[in-house]
Amino acid sequence: MTGSLRKMASRIVTYAHDSVRISTAEVGTAVYVGPRVPGNLNLGDNLLYWAHQHALPDIPLRQVHTLPALLGPGIVRRRQLRGTVLGGGTLIGSPGFRRGLESALALLPEHPVVNLGTGVDDPAMPSVGTPGDSSELRAWIPLLRAMPKVWVRGPLSRDLLRTAGIDAQVSGDPVLLFALDADLHDRPAVGRIGINLGITGNQWQRNPADLVRAVVAYGHLMQERGLQVVLISVWDSDDPITASVAAELGCPAVLAAELRTVGTMRRVLKDIDLLVAQKLHAVVGAACVATPSIALEYRPKCRDFQESVGTGRWTLRTSETTAAALAAMTGQLYEEREATIKTLIEQVTMRRAAISAAAFEAYDILNG
């Protein structure tokens, strides 16, 4: 079977699966447009879905990636679905999720669409497509204007939409609803740092191998300074590179299957002094327990989140990442670690309150 036939067959299976999920949904369900879960070992996708379930009690979420056109509005009305929830993650500006939202609007005419805090894909370095092409973001504008309010992850997302004529408001990343309150101020350094790396599409650093080499060299530098290093994967597709780098450094690795719950995520990320992370929701997870992060900005969404919690200065673009630059930033962050933890606690608390306010509004809208 050729690649194109396999892709078509996979899409047909997806449509059939989504058809069953929607047609068998219980009364009062809302459609969730976002990455496919459960059964997905992408911690960020799972955390975002769980956060929306947590934020919208008594409203079952029937999650689909792309709603199939096989279902007619009559079937949906008989099931009495409440409306659509545009999930978290960098969805706005993504063609795949735009098609999912367009299908939801077609199937649920005159039903509300709400969100709690969605990221905007920056055309300067989008997840897919040609850097600098803003046509996809423009295609989202009519959809966003159909929403009573648009909540976004961070200030960069807000500014992108405001430039396009959408008065978006910053709430934050919904995963921050899982932030801890207790025992975060008293965090003496234990001499252990976490490192997260992964595979990705478009990124500022065009040669991923160069980034890996830089991070390996950085890991050796940290070990020479007497620090322990642990590799942390938040997606099973990143497990091979995680295991490979851990083997080069002779250090332990936490693979994606070990981070299947919110509690495990909190424990692993609270047990380190700081995190150097490429994947966004490794950084978000660390913020939930006030662990400072150096975000390796492979796309603008990483800086968007860091700015949202007052730690934008601890961001290093992947195209500028060297072992020396990372080591220098690590030394500076250790010196300012106590103040950075305090900033994270204050800012995450504010963001969590804003996300909760967005959730209350969404809940009222979906309940009519």
Score class of each variant (00 low, 15 high):
Asp239Asn: 13
Pro240His: 01
Pro240Glu: 04
Ile241Trp: 01
Thr242Val: 07
Thr242Asp: 03
Ala243Pro: 11
Val245Ile: 11
Val245Ala: 11
Glu248Leu: 10
Glu248Pro: 09
Cys251Gln: 03
Cys251Glu: 03
Pro252Ile: 03
Pro252Gln: 00
Ala253Trp: 05
Val254Met: 05
Leu255Pro: 05
Ala257Tyr: 10
Glu258His: 10
Glu258Phe: 08
Arg260Met: 08
Arg260Leu: 11
Arg260Gln: 13
Arg260Trp: 10
Thr261Gln: 06
Thr261Leu: 05
Thr261Glu: 04
Val262Gln: 06
Val262Ala: 08
Gly263Ile: 05
Gly263Lys: 06
Met265Asp: 00
Met265Ile: 13
Met265Val: 15
Arg266Gly: 02
Arg267Met: 12
Arg267Trp: 11
Val268Cys: 11
Val268Ala: 09
Lys270Thr: 12
Asp271Met: 05
Asp271Pro: 10
Asp271Ser: 15
Ile272Leu: 11
Ile272Gly: 04
Asp273Arg: 01
Leu274Cys: 11
Leu274Lys: 00
Leu275Trp: 04
Leu275Ala: 06
Val276Ser: 10
Val276Met: 05
Ala277Val: 03
Ala277Leu: 02
Leu280His: 02
Leu280Tyr: 03
His281Ile: 03
Ala282Phe: 06
Ala282His: 05
Val284Ala: 07
Gly285Met: 02
Ala286Cys: 07
Ala287Met: 04
Ala287Trp: 00
Cys288Glu: 03
Val289Thr: 05
Ala290Lys: 05
Ile294Asn: 07
Ile294Met: 06
Ile294Tyr: 02
Ala295Tyr: 01
Ala295Ile: 04
Ala295Gln: 01
Ala295Trp: 00
Leu296Glu: 07
Tyr298Pro: 10
Tyr298Glu: 09
Tyr298His: 12
Arg299Ile: 14
Arg303Asn: 07
Arg303Trp: 00
Asp304Ser: 06
Phe305Val: 02
Glu307Arg: 13
Glu307Pro: 02
Ser308His: 00
Ser308Lys: 01
Ser308Asp: 01
Val309Tyr: 01
Gly310Ile: 01
Gly310Met: 03
Thr311Gly: 02
Thr315Leu: 06
Leu316His: 09
Arg317Glu: 12
Thr318Pro: 12
Ser319Ala: 15
Thr322Gln: 09
Ala324His: 07
Ala324Glu: 13
Ala325Glu: 07
Ala325Lys: 08
Ala328Gly: 12
Thr330Asp: 03
Gly331Thr: 08
Gln332Asp: 15
Leu333Val: 04
Tyr334Asp: 11
Tyr334Leu: 15
Glu335Asp: 15
Glu336Thr: 11
Arg337Lys: 10
Arg337Ser: 09
Glu338Leu: 07
Glu338Ser: 14
Glu338Asn: 10
Ala339Gln: 14
Ala339Asn: 10
Thr343Phe: 00
Thr343Cys: 12
Thr343Met: 06
Thr343Leu: 02
Glu346Ser: 15
Gln347Ser: 15
Gln347Leu: 04
Met350Glu: 14
Met350Thr: 14
Arg352Tyr: 10
